[in-house]
Deep mutational scan, measured.
Amino acid sequence: QIFVKTLTGKTITLEVEPSDTIENVKAKIQDKEGIPPDQQRLIFAGKQLEDGRTLSDYNIQKESTLHLVL
């Protein structure tokens, strides 16, 4: 699982696999929060994550925290 922290300070927990794409993660966030993926920007280690890449591409491991910017 990974954590996604929103600007409001809320933390969302997501069940993911390293092979999941960023697009996939955004879809999971939409399921939980109702935020359309095209409004979501995910930041990890100061980098904006691209939809077509996977979590493992960015070396995002379990218990990692991503930041969600709208």
Rank of each mutant, 00 (worst) to 15 (best):
T54E: 04
E17H: 10
L55E: 00
L49K: 00
K10G: 08
Q48W: 14
H67Y: 13
G46W: 04
R53N: 09
D51N: 13
P36D: 07
E33F: 10
Q39C: 15
Q1T: 15
Y58E: 03
Y58P: 00
T11S: 07
L14E: 00
L68I: 05
N24T: 15
T8C: 15
I12C: 03
L70G: 10
D51G: 07
K62W: 13
S64F: 08
Q30N: 09
T8D: 15
K28V: 04
K32M: 11
T13R: 06
P18S: 10
Q30F: 13
Y58L: 06
K28F: 06
T54D: 03
V69D: 07
G34H: 07
Q30T: 10
Q61C: 08
G52F: 11
R53T: 07
Q30Y: 15
L55D: 00
S19P: 03
R41N: 12
K26C: 02
G34E: 04
D57W: 10
G9W: 03
P36I: 05
Y58W: 02
T6R: 06
T65A: 04
V4G: 01
K62T: 15
I12N: 01
I22H: 01
E33A: 11
L42A: 00
Q61N: 11
D31T: 10
V69M: 13
D38W: 13
P36E: 07
Q40R: 02
I35L: 06
K5G: 04
L55H: 00
T54P: 05
D31Q: 15
I60F: 03
I12R: 02
P37M: 14
D51P: 07
N24K: 12
I22R: 00
L7G: 12
F3W: 06
N24I: 15
V25E: 00
E23V: 09
V69T: 09
S64D: 15
I60Y: 02
E23L: 15
L66V: 09
T11A: 05
V69L: 13
L55F: 03
D20W: 09
L49R: 00
G9S: 04
Q48P: 11
I60L: 04
Y58N: 03
G52H: 14
T54F: 07
F3G: 03
E17Y: 10
G9V: 02
S19N: 11
G52E: 10
E33I: 14
D20L: 05
E50M: 09
L68V: 05
T6G: 07
P18T: 09
P37C: 11
K5E: 09
L42F: 03
T6K: 05
F44C: 05
P37W: 10
T11M: 11
K47E: 14
P18K: 06
D51H: 06
S56M: 13
D57S: 11
D38T: 09
I12K: 01
I35K: 02
T65G: 03
F44M: 05
I43S: 11
S64Y: 08
F44W: 09
D38P: 07
R41Y: 12
T21W: 05
V69Q: 09
D57F: 13
K10R: 12
I60A: 02
L70P: 10
D38A: 12
K28C: 05
P36L: 06
V25R: 00
E17R: 06
V69A: 09
I2S: 01
G9E: 04
D51Q: 05
K47I: 14
E50W: 05
I60S: 01
L14H: 00
A27W: 10
E15P: 06
I22K: 00
E23A: 15
V4R: 00
G52K: 12
R41S: 11
T6A: 06
I35G: 02
V69P: 01
K10Q: 10
T54W: 04
D31C: 14
I12V: 06
D51L: 05
K32A: 12
T13M: 10
A45N: 15
T6H: 07
K47C: 13
L66P: 02
D31R: 13
Q40A: 05
Y58K: 01
T6S: 07
E63Y: 13
K26L: 04
T21H: 04
Q1N: 10
I60V: 08
T8L: 12
D20K: 02
T11F: 09
Q30C: 14
D57V: 03
D51Y: 05
K32P: 02
E50L: 09
I22W: 02
D38F: 12
Q48D: 13
P37I: 14
I2K: 01
A27Q: 12
V4T: 01
I22N: 01
G9K: 04
G52N: 11
V16F: 12
K26S: 02
V16E: 00
D57Y: 13
Q40E: 02
L42I: 07
G46K: 04
K5N: 06
S64E: 09
I35H: 08
I12L: 10
I60D: 01
Q1E: 09
K47F: 09
I2L: 08
D31H: 12
Q40G: 03
I12Y: 06
E17T: 10
L55A: 02
T6D: 08
H67I: 13
L14D: 01
Q1S: 10
